[in-house]
């Protein structure tokens, strides 16, 4: 797609904004984006630039296009998917592709390390799905429990309920481990 401003260069920046009560989308080349004041890595409250990171990737890292088809085990994204969309797939992608993401992260943020707060997750046992799952099939044999849990896990994965699936997977592992004793 060509830039809507100059009609000459390839549009790399996509801007959505509200104009006269309508959400409008603009496609601009990086130069026109800069000229019109969209030259910041900013998705503030009044406009968003979802594909800016993507264009930025293409500008700075052309050599990575043939990087192979390694996929993130959690969300299935390849590094090329991330470059193409400008979106990282999931938290584990940052781990899996850390070395390849780092140069771009440093282009944006420098060599900085996180200096802000840290989340404090406190497990509240009576609210966790795991315990409810464990209680229900008490009267069953271990095999029945595993089969039921596996079916449930499959359902959880199909409905993209990954949190629940992870809990069930751990539960199944535990039960299978007990059997071997």
């Amino acid at each position: 797609m060509l830039c809507q401003n100059c009609n000459q260069k390839e549009a790399t920046t996509h801007i959505k904004r509200v104009v006269n009560g309508e959400a409008e989308e603009h496609h601009l080349c990086s130069e026109c984006a800069k000229k019109l004041g969209y030259d910041h890595f900013l998705d503030d409250f009044s406009l968003s630039i979802p594909n800016f990171f993507s264009s930025f990737f293409h500008d700075t890292m052309p050599a990575l296009k043939g990087a192979g088809a390694e996929h993130c085990g959690t969300c299935g994204s390849s590094f090329e998917d991330i470059v193409r969309s400008g979106m990282v797939g999931c938290a584990d992608c940052y781990d899996k592709f850390f070395d390849r993401l780092l140069p771009s992260i440093q282009r944006i943020h420098g060599r900085a390390r996180h200096a802000g707060k840290t989340p404090h997750y406190t497990v509240e046992p009576d609210e966790k799905g795991a315990d409810k799952v464990a209680e229900a099939p008490k009267a069953q044999t271990a095999e029945q429990q595993i089969a039921a849990l596996e079916a449930e896990m499959q359902k959880a994965i199909e409905s993209q309920n990954f949190e629940q699936a992870a809990v069930l997977r751990d539960k199944i592992k535990e039960l299978k481990g007990d059997d071997r004793k």
Binding site: F41, L42, D43, P50, F52, F53, G86, M87, V88, A91, Y94, D95, L101, S104, I105, I108, H109, A112, R113, H114, A115, G116, T118, P119
Partner: peptide, 15 residues
């Protein structure tokens, strides 16, 4: 992530 802070879909918001 301890190094990158809160992980976001677009790396511009990391930290």
């Amino acid at each position: 992530d301890p190094r990158l802070g809160y992980l976001t879909q677009c790396p511009t918001n990391l930290g």
